[in-house]
Structures are given as C-alpha cells and as structure tokens.
C-alpha cells in the first residue's frame, strides 16, 4: 500500500504520415509519493496526454517502465486502481447522473471492493444532491465535470489521473472547482497526477509542479510548492504564491526556447 506512481526511462515517439519520427517523450523519470499531488505543466503537444495514457496502460511506451503501487499499469487496470478524468466530462448521455457515476463499478466485476463509496455518498461529496436523476444535457458544464470527478472516484482509486479536467470551464466555475477538488482529495487521499497548462492552477493545487520541455530533447524542471497542504484564497494573493507561479512560468519559458 504505497500508492506511488513510478516512471522510469519512459520514451515514446510517433511516426507521422509522411514517415517522420517525432519523439514526444525522451527518457522521462520521476516518482510521485503516496497521496502527493503533482501537476504537469507544459505547452500543447509536449506529450502530457501521452504520458498519462502510458501511465494508465492505455498506450504502451517504446521503452521504460511504469509502476503503480508496485504493479504494472495492466495489473493496476485489472485491479481497478486507476481513476481517469478528461478535459471533456465524457459522460454517457443516455445515463442519469447516478448511473454515470456507477459506471466504473459495473464493469470488470471480478474486482469489487467493499471500500467503494456508495453512489449516494459520492453525489453529496460533489454537491449534486437532488440531481441524481438528471441527464447530462440538463446540467451545466461545471456540474458535468463534478459528475465526471465522482465517477473517477467511485472505485476509490489509488491513483487519480486528470487530463486538464477544468480546461473547458469558465474562470468562475474553475476557481470554485479547485477548492472543491482539494477538499475532496483531503477525504479520499489518492495520489494525483494533474495535467494542465495553467501555471496558477498548478501551483494552487500541487505539492510539486513538473514543467515539461517543449521538445523531448529538453529536461523536465521541478518546482516544489512549499505552501503546506491547506490552501486558501487568501494564499493566492501572497508573495510566496506569486513567486512560485512566476517560477513555474519562467521555467516554462526557459524550456520553451
């Protein structure tokens, strides 16, 4: 029970249609500790989503290994240890909120865990009481993303992979979602890998921020966010917070060139 995400020497390249090999990940290494929140920041096309897909076992790396809580991604999949959340809520439109959240527990039934949260509990955790029997088309963008979050948490995942989950939300909704997420994670404590291209968001949420290089040849920079685990809106205007955001931004710019 260490819930760690370990990535060793992972490389991946794509061959484009005209035969040019395009390296997106070059020997990536890192270890994310138990219950740690790590954000990966980087420009579009730098391989953030590819990295998440490799960690979740959806995509095989060309070389290197990934270890999740001591298991390979494939075994973690079969044990249902991985929670996944996308930029698009990706809800099933013909299912109600309740049935959407229940979806992960309905498949791969060989694995059922008595530690699963009840759907009712998840609904109240994400603040959707009264919307159980609504359909996705009846919800606002922020509510849909809350359903998506509850769905990811329904299997009580050891690791939670989030691919720009708030990227398509408006500023106001996104800000409230940040604090809701932190509060939720405080209760569920999975290890989180969060992909974003918003430096402020990364600093606000994370214990550490990894800045990905624009091209695979560059090195990944790590910014430690020494703000303690409890974050508040007051903190967002503090000098230290802004220094950290600037630090992420400058390493972003520095690796970009």
């Amino acid at each position: 029970m260490n819930n760690r995400i370990e990535v060793y020497n992972v490389s991946k390249s794509y061959v484009s249609k005209n035969g040019v090999e395009n390296k997106v990940l070059n020997s990536v290494n890192f270890v994310i500790k138990h219950s740690e929140f790590v954000s990966i920041v980087g420009p579009s096309g730098c391989g953030k989503t590819t990295l998440l897909k490799i960690i979740s076992g959806l995509l095989p790396p060309d070389s290197g290994t990934v270890v999740i809580d001591g298991d390979s991604p494939e075994i973690s999949q079969s044990k249902k240890h991985i929670g996944y959340m996308f930029q698009d809520p990706a809800l099933i439109p013909w299912r109600t909120v309740y049935d959407n959240i229940r979806l992960p527990t309905e498949v791969n039934k060989a694995i059922t865990d008595e530690h699963y949260r009840t759907i009712e509990e998840l609904i109240s955790l994400v603040g959707l009481n009264g919307f159980e029997y609504h359909y996705p088309y009846q919800l606002s963008g922020g509510m849909r993303q809350r359903v998506s979050l509850a769905r990811a948490l329904s299997i009580n995942p050891k690791v939670l992979l989030m691919d720009e989950p708030f990227g398509s939300l408006d500023e106001i909704t996104r800000e409230t979602m940040h604090y809701e997420l932190l509060e939720l994670l405080d209760k569920t404590k999975p290890t989180v890998l969060f992909v974003t291209h918003n430096s402020t968001e990364a600093v606000l949420l994370s214990d550490r921020v990894f800045v990905m290089p624009k091209s695979a040849a560059g090195a990944m920079k790590i910014v430690n966010v020494n703000l303690g685990r409890t974050r508040s809106e007051k903190m967002e205007s503090s000098v230290l917070f802004n220094q950290l955001v600037n630090q992420v931004r400058s390493s972003y710019k520095c690796v970009k060139t």
Partner: peptide, 25 residues
C-alpha cells in the same frame, strides 16, 4: 467517444462490456 472507451479500458472492461455499455447504445 474515445474518452469513454479509454475510461472503460482503464478499468479493464472487456470488449463485450464496452460494446454493451457504450458502443451499441
């Protein structure tokens, strides 16, 4: 939606489950 099939795959759902829960409807 490839997000939905990816989600189901990340839970090790069988091909049949993916078809019944997502593709066919």
């Amino acid at each position: 939606s490839s997000d939905i099939t990816d989600l189901l795959k990340s839970l090790n759902a069988s091909k049949f489950e993916i078809m019944i829960k997502a593709s066919f409807p």
